[in-house]
Computed example of a mutant assay.
Amino acid sequence: EENSAHFKFQSELPESIDGFIGQGHKNAAKALQDVIVDHPYVHVLGVEGNLGAGKSTSIKILESQLDENTYKFIYFDVDQHH
């Protein structure tokens, strides 16, 4: 009988907290927050990085730091719609 066990070693979902000592994701989120709050004429921000670099985690942290009644986040998964 063939073994049909499936193992999952890594989650591809973004985290809502920064678990790293250097707090790089939290710092990136804070920098984005500063631009959004202090420069209301900026309407588009780009976040660039390699696969697994923490872009989505930084965005999730940013979302948790901003007032949900003032700022709306819309997620679009480009990989599913290419």
Rank of each mutant, 00 (worst) to 15 (best):
E2H: 03
A5N: 13
A5S: 12
H6R: 09
F7K: 08
F9Q: 05
F9K: 03
F9A: 06
Q10K: 13
E12K: 05
L13G: 05
L13R: 11
P14L: 09
P14D: 04
E15H: 13
E15P: 00
S16V: 12
I17H: 13
D18H: 07
G19H: 09
I21S: 10
I21D: 08
G22M: 10
Q23H: 10
G24D: 10
G24A: 09
H25Q: 15
H25E: 05
K26Q: 14
K26Y: 14
A29I: 09
K30N: 13
A31P: 00
Q33P: 00
D34S: 13
D34P: 01
V35A: 03
I36C: 04
I36T: 06
I36M: 14
V37R: 15
V37T: 14
D38L: 08
H39L: 04
H43P: 00
V44K: 00
L45F: 01
G46N: 05
G46F: 14
G46C: 12
G46A: 14
A53R: 02
A53F: 11
A53N: 07
A53T: 05
K55L: 09
K55Q: 10
K55E: 09
S56I: 03
S56A: 12
S56D: 02
S58M: 05
K60T: 03
K60E: 15
K60Y: 07
I61P: 11
L62Q: 05
E63Y: 02
E63A: 13
S64V: 02
S64C: 03
S64Y: 02
Q65E: 12
L66I: 00
T70P: 00
Y71F: 15
Y71D: 01
K72P: 00
K72Q: 13
Y75L: 06
D77N: 15
V78S: 13
V78K: 04
D79M: 10
H82T: 10
H82V: 10
